[in-house]
C-alpha cells in the first residue's frame, strides 16, 4: 500500500508533465544566491521597462494638449508662442517613438523630469518623500506581524470561544477600509480620549494612529493565513513525533509549528508591500503626513504627469526589491529551498 497518490497516473519519480504553477518562473527562487540575483536583475530590468512603457503610452491617452497641461491646464490663458516653446522644451513636437526613447533614456539616468504643478525636479522631490512612507510601511508591517502572531497563537489554543472570536476578528479586520478605520481611530483616540493627535505630528505619538490604520487590516489577512498554516503544522505527524518525545506545548509551538506557520505569510510580503502602498495613499492623506502616497494623490488630482510616473517607477522598484527580500527570507527560513 503506497499511502500517497497524487494523481491517478503520474510518472513515478519522474517530474510531472504539467508545468508547475509558479507565478514567476523567471523570478523564481534559484538554488544559489548568485543565480538568484542574476535572475532577479534580468527580471527587474524587464519589469521596470514594461512599467515605464505602459505608463508612457497610458499617459498619451489623456485627452487634450499636454503642453496646455504643463502651462496650467486648459482653463488658463496661454499664448500660442508659449505653447510652442513648451512643446519644444519638453520634446512634444518630436515623433512618438523619439519621445518614448528619450523618456526611457531619462528614466535610465534617474531623471524623472520636472513637475508641472510644483515647478521643481521630480527625483529629488520624491526622494525627500520616500523616507516617511517607508518608515510608515515598515512599522506597519512589523506591527501587523506581531498582531497576527499573537492572534493566531492565542486563537488556536484557547478553545472554541477563542477560535471563533479570533477568526471573526481577523475576517472583520481584513475587511476594514483604511479610510474608515482611520476615521474611527481618530474619533476614539483623539476626539473622545484625547490621547493621540488627529493629524500626524512629528515624533512617535503622531505615528501611532497611521501605523495602526495600516497594520490592522494587514494583520487580519496575515492572521488568517498564519492560523491556517499553524493548524496544519500542529496536526502534522512531525508534531505528534515531537510530543511523543516529551516535547511540551510551548516547545511544539516555538520549535516546530510557528516556523512552518510563518512560511506562507513570508511569501506574501510582496503583496503586503503593495497593499501598504495603496493604504499609504489614504492614510497619508487623512493624517496629513508627507509621503509618496499623498504626493501621487495630489498629482493625480492636478494631472501632474511626471510626478505620477515618478511615484509609479519608485513603487515598482520597491516592489521588485521586496520580492528579492521575500525570496531571501524564504531561502533562509525554509532549508528545503536550498537543497542541492
Amino acid at each position: 500500500m503506497t499511502g500517497t497518490a497524487a494523481g491517478a497516473l503520474r510518472p513515478d519519480g519522474a517530474p510531472r508533465s504539467a508545468r508547475p504553477l509558479r507565478a514567476r518562473p523567471w523570478l523564481a527562487v534559484r538554488r544559489s544566491i548568485p543565480g538568484l540575483l542574476a535572475a532577479r536583475l534580468v527580471g527587474a530590468v524587464f519589469v521596470l521597462w514594461a512599467v515605464a512603457t505602459i505608463t508612457f503610452f497610458a499617459i498619451r491617452l489623456i485627452p487634450g494638449d499636454p503642453a496646455e497641461a504643463i502651462l496650467g491646464g486648459p482653463g488658463s490663458q496661454t499664448s500660442p508662442e508659449a505653447l510652442t516653446a513648451v512643446r519644444a522644451q519638453y520634446g512634444l513636437d518630436q515623433p512618438v517613438l523619439v519621445q518614448y526613447l528619450a523618456q526611457l533614456g531619462r528614466l535610465a539616468r534617474g531623471d524623472l523630469g520636472r513637475s508641472y504643478a510644483l515647478r521643481q525636479d521630480v527625483a529629488p522631490l520624491l526622494v525627500g518623500q520616500l523616507g516617511g512612507t517607508l518608515l510608515l510601511a515598515a512599522l506597519a508591517l512589523v506591527v501587523a506581524w506581531l498582531f497576527a502572531l499573537v492572534l493566531a497563537t492565542w486563537s488556536t489554543r484557547g478553545g472554541r470561544f477563542a477560535w471563533y472570536l479570533g477568526s471573526g476578528l481577523e475576517i472583520v479586520a481584513a475587511a476594514l477600509p483604511h479610510f474608515w478605520l482611520a476615521t474611527a481611530l481618530i474619533v476614539l483616540f483623539s476626539v473622545w480620549l484625547g490621547v493621540l493627535p488627529p493629524i500626524s505630528t512629528p515624533g512617535p505619538a503622531g505615528l501611532v494612529l497611521p501605523v495602526l490604520t495600516l497594520a490592522i487590516p494587514l494583520a487580519g489577512f496575515l492572521g488568517q493565513i498564519m492560523r491556517e498554516s499553524l493548524l496544519t503544522a500542529l496536526e502534522s505527524p512531525f508534531v505528534l513525533s515531537a510530543r511523543a518525545r516529551g516535547e511540551g506545548e510551548r516547545g511544539v509551538r516555538w520549535i516546530h509549528a510557528l516556523r512552518h506557520a510563518s512560511l506562507p505569510a513570508i511569501s506574501l510580503s510582496g503583496w503586503a508591500f503593495g497593499s501598504l502602498i495603496s493604504g499609504a495613499v489614504v492614510v497619508e492623506t487623512i493624517f496629513a503626513r508627507p509621503g509618496l502616497g499623498r504626493t501621487i494623490l495630489n498629482a493625480v488630482t492636478v494631472r501632474d504627469v511626471p510626478v505620477v510616473i515618478g511615484v509609479v517607477m519608485i513603487v515598482a522598484i520597491g516592489y521588485i526589491l521586496m520580492t528579492v527580500i521575500t525570496d531571501l527570507a524564504q531561502w533562509i527560513a525554509d532549508p528545503r529551498l536550498r537543497r542541492r
Binding site: L240, S241, A244, R245, G246, H256, R336
Partner: peptide
C-alpha cells in the same frame, strides 16, 4: 505524561518525510 514520553515509551510513525520536522 511528558516526563515519560520519549524516556519510557518511544513512538515511530509511518512516512518519515513528514514525521520528522522537514525544517529541522
Amino acid at each position: 505524561w511528558r516526563r515519560r514520553r520519549g524516556r519510557d515509551v518511544g513512538l515511530v510513525l509511518q512516512d518519515a518525510l513528514v514525521s520528522l520536522d522537514p525544517l529541522r
